[in-house]
Simulated assay, not measured.
Amino acid sequence: MLKLYYNPGTIALASHIALEESGADYEAKKLNPAIMEHTKPEYLAINPKGRVPSLVTDRGILTETPAILLYIAQVYGASAFPPPEDPYDLAQLQSFNNYLCSTLHVNHAHRKRGRRWVDEQNTAAIKAMEIKVKSNMEECFQMIEDEMFEGPWVMGPDYSIADPYLFTITQWMEGDGVDPADFPKLLAHRKAMLARPAVARVVAEHAAK
């Protein structure tokens, strides 16, 4: 059985949705953010990076969302996430997911985790990073809205592992000061995702106390 470690409110939601959609036999283990459980020795023995998600498989432990999503799609999710047959199409899918990983997620992290980039005493720099998050995220969402989103799903007519990933990051819009109404395609995508029973189940689980 697969085992997914996650924190509520994090990017781990994407991997959790993918597992639920795929029908794989898995267990979801919620870590306790109140005690920073992801930084404790027990979890660091699973993922020394101290981040979520982590996916325990029968062959070892996978980390990093793009890798976990691709693994789920290729091993368990052929019906929910038909893998692209053409290498170029697969590369395009990975290009989209890696943009979310390397650019949007990093931009978002500057709002609460500026101390990753500057010393804690440099409060002016930390504040400047927080202020910049809104415009950085808006710029990225506009790029996706105008250039990268095929519709009705990310890659076109077929649901793919890019959809739970994009959905998870658009969940952060309001917190980052971004108005979802400014991005009608992404807002419609969010609503379509929430209408999927598997997505609704996982979202409810993450929201539960």
Rank of each mutant, 00 (worst) to 15 (best):
L4N: 03
N122E: 04
V52E: 00
A14N: 12
A78Q: 12
T10K: 10
L104I: 13
V75W: 02
K185V: 06
A192E: 03
D158I: 07
V203K: 12
Y88M: 10
S15R: 10
E27C: 06
I11Y: 06
T65M: 01
N47C: 05
P197H: 04
Y88G: 02
Y88W: 13
T63D: 03
Q92R: 15
Y6M: 02
A28E: 11
T10E: 12
P82T: 11
A195T: 01
N32M: 04
A14W: 13
Y6K: 09
I68T: 07
S160Y: 05
P82W: 00
K29M: 08
A188G: 09
P180L: 07
E145P: 10
L55A: 04
R115D: 04
N107D: 08
P164G: 11
P83K: 05
R196C: 11
Y88R: 03
E147L: 06
D182R: 13
D182P: 01
I17E: 11
H16M: 02
L93Y: 09
I61K: 08
R116N: 07
V199W: 00
P66C: 00
M148K: 13
H108S: 10
T57R: 09
I72C: 11
S22Y: 10
E147N: 13
H110F: 14
E145A: 14
R111K: 14
L13N: 05
E27N: 02
Y165C: 04
A192T: 00
N136Y: 01
Y26H: 14
A109I: 05
Y71H: 15
P197D: 07
A78E: 11
E42I: 00
L44D: 02
E147Q: 09
W117M: 06
H206D: 11
V154K: 05
W117C: 02
V75S: 13
N32E: 15
L93S: 01
D25I: 09
R51G: 05
C140N: 12
R113C: 06
Q171M: 09
T39F: 08
R201F: 08
L70H: 06
P152T: 07
S22Q: 07
A204E: 14
R115N: 13
K132M: 04
A14S: 15
V178E: 03
P8H: 10
D119I: 00
